[in-house]
């Protein structure tokens, strides 16, 4: 069983780890299927409290947007995998993670074409 934490901003990955007030914690079985999923609402945004939650919830992978170096290093030091600077809806990001294709810096948000573009 593997636990993944995604910091949320609405339905998307929160642009900033330290300002996220909601997180999705998913438990994934050996076969890559999500067996349990819960959304936790935090009383206030705090990178320290989120790091603490990652450790107490025994999370193995954190998926987030921007994260400060010191929190990134702290989590890595604690042997937590951190995929940061990810932009996109949480469900799409989760699918990519399950397929093993998600990387730090991935932008999975649908881009809006400018007015007048052929595909708009």
């Amino acid at each position: 069983m593997k636990k993944i934490l995604i910091s949320l901003y609405g339905n998307d990955v929160a642009p900033r780890f330290d300002l996220a007030t909601e997180v999705l914690i998913a438990s994934m079985g050996e076969d890559g299927q999500v067996v349990d999923e819960k959304i936790l609402v935090l009383p206030q945004a705090s990178a320290e409290k989120l790091c603490h939650m990652v450790l107490t919830e025994d999370v193995q992978t954190v998926i987030c947007g921007g994260i400060e170096e010191e929190y990134y290093q702290y989590l890595v030091w604690k042997r937590v995998e951190v995929l940061d600077s990810v932009i996109g809806p949480a469900n799409v990001v989760m699918d990519h993670y399950r397929q093993g294709t998600l990387q730090s810096g991935d932008i999975l948000l649908k881009r809006r074409q400018r007015e007048g573009d052929e595909n708009s």
């Binding site: 998307d12 642009p15 300002l19 932009i87 948000l109 881009r111 809006r112 074409q113």
Partner: peptide
């Protein structure tokens, strides 16, 4: 920001700039 034009174009500003005030 570290995001170049091709990456940033068409994405909401708050995801690229990630300014505290955006939220």
């Amino acid at each position: 920001t570290g995001f170049v034009q091709q990456e940033a174009e068409g994405i909401p500003c708050s995801y690229i700039l990630r300014n505290k005030n955006c939220f």
